[in-house]
Design a protein around this nucleic acid. Structure first.
Lengths: 139, 139
DNA sequence: TTCCTTGCAAATCGTTTGCATAATG
DNA sequence: CATTATGCAAACGATTTGCAAGGAA
């Protein structure tokens, strides 16, 4: 299973690194086609899965039924706006200590936890008050 | 949109209340057919969605691509075994304080958070050591 | 009678996969 | 040359939906 170099994989990874809004496979596909017009959706999926498996990118499942991808694999948390669906990075301290609270009463082995926050983002909060949004979605 | 009574909805809810293993729509369907043989999968999905929308049951998205349903809507957390996929209730204190750590640096409005734990359950841990499991899965 | 619910089947959506061909090491 | 990667299209699994018929208020 030796990995061989491929231009499509490079372009996919590079595109992902330019985005901080955690695009879906489809969005990656749409954008990458500007550089490789005949790339196929299947190839995009295969490479996103491969990159996620070897840890070069992260696959985010935020409960909206679609996978999002993130080139930033460092420890951080996400916020999902219930109104516009945007996924936003959060600056906050590590909360792995919550695992300790489980271990106290649990017999199995806890490897980790998944946590994400939801609510209304700044822009959507403003809109619902009739104010102008602060910025447009990147996508 | 006045709600009308329906036997299929009753049976679905009753079945869910007898289970603490958070079955999927398909498992609900299989079991409910023992009491209503000609019930359709669509009806099961429609009622599970309806019950979840009015808050009588909870829809659990634990990242395995399939929705699980829980008749226990009280605040509690879940553990998902990475090996056998079983979803287990956890006894532990409320961890809503983690939201406070986000609010400090976030402009939007945080309504809540989703957290689940993963790892290896007691039975799978035992199996991997060649020991006999403590109990069989309920499904 | 009104209109919510159902069963059935077809449709959707996101994602995966089989296959023959192309590209890499 | 041996193998991995690609494009294409078909296949998939979970869930939703349109529709005509059935059931509750």
């Amino acid at each position: 299973m030796a990995l061989k170099h491929s231009r499509q994989r490079d372009v996919i990874k590079e595109f992902l690194m330019t985005r901080k809004d955690h695009p879906t496979a489809d969005v990656v596909y749409m954008n990458v086609r500007q550089q490789i017009p005949n790339i196929s959706l299947g190839t995009v999926y295969r490479n996103l899965t491969l990159l996620a498996d070897i840890g070069e990118i992260a696959r985010l499942r935020v409960g909206d039924g679609v996978d999002h991808f993130d080139a930033d694999t460092s420890l951080h948390y996400h916020f999902i706006c219930s109104e516009c669906g945007s996924v936003i990075d959060l600056k906050m301290d590590n909360i792995d200590h919550i695992v300790d609270q489980v271990n106290a009463h649990f017999d199995g082995n806890i490897a980790g936890h998944v946590t994400y926050f939801y609510g209304t983002c700044k822009d959507c909060t403003c809109k619902s008050r009739g104010l102008a949004p602060q910025s447009q979605p990147t996508s």
